[in-house]
Design a protein around this nucleic acid. Sequence first.
DNA 1: CCCAACCATCCAACAATGGGAACGTTCCCA
DNA 2: TGGGAACGTTCCCATTGTTGGATGGTTGGG
Lengths: 137, 137
Amino acid sequence: MIRHYEKIGLIETAGRTASGYRVYTSNDVHTLQFIRRSRDLGFSVAQIQDLLALWRTRDRSSAEVRAVAVEHIEHLCEKVTQLQEMIATLRDLAERCSDDDRPDCPILQDLAEGRHGECDAPVESRFGVGRVHATPQ
Amino acid sequence: MIRHYEKIGLIETAGRTASGYRVYTSNDVHTLQFIRRSRDLGFSVAQIQDLLALWRTRDRSSAEVRAVAVEHIEHLCEKVTQLQEMIATLRDLAERCSDDDRPDCPILQDLAEGRHGECDAPVESRFGVGRVHATPQ
DNA sequence: CCCAACCATCCAACAATGGGAACGTTCCCA
DNA sequence: TGGGAACGTTCCCATTGTTGGATGGTTGGG
């Protein structure tokens, strides 16, 4: 991972011993810990790049940092919402499923027939079947 | 995507016209819709493979289908839990952030110093700095 | 019959990591 | 003074699901 971070430019090129081994200063280690904690909080590499830049800037504004964090929070919330919608649908289906040897299953039925909304568009536009756009004029 | 699904064996090889164009039967389209709805619910390709197999099996048991769904629900719940933990931490940090021009920012401070628990292990074992295991005996 | 819109294939990239092969280095311990 | 295990290095491939480009063949309406 660290070598990867070095390659993509997230951290600066580490020093080397005479034999080619990488040498990390305590500063490097500190930066890596910063990165790890950022990743633990779900920040993307791009965002970490921003955060690191701000971290290294003496006269940064905390508002800038907060903006990155707030944007990330919103992104995470969106993901949670999506996941909870999936969970709700699946819970509903699983609850209506007899959970025995019978072959009729509301879960498969739903997947096959799709009554949960997102699939109202005609097949043609959803899968590009057939010639969609005629030559104009 | 569809060509990709064909390549990885999620769907069977589509028929071809004389000139090599793929031809999809309404059955194929139905299967693809099944797949899309499964993906909308967050199922992985591997799980969809299972679901498709069950779908095509006449004397399947709905318990089998339910098992796939329930396992998936648990997986989704885990993800939600993780995301919510991140959100809680970030919300707390953002709240304590002054959101102005001052350079002292609790968010960066936390990322740099890490007081939220997961980082108690010494640097050596977390990043492989130094020789961890001596030759035994 | 031309040309835009469509198909085909192959290849590369994304984000972040994991893993292995093949090979050089360090250093404890016998 | 070795031997050998535990390191390190580089390069490459796999993952997961999707998107995109490049290049070239096919279709079909105007």
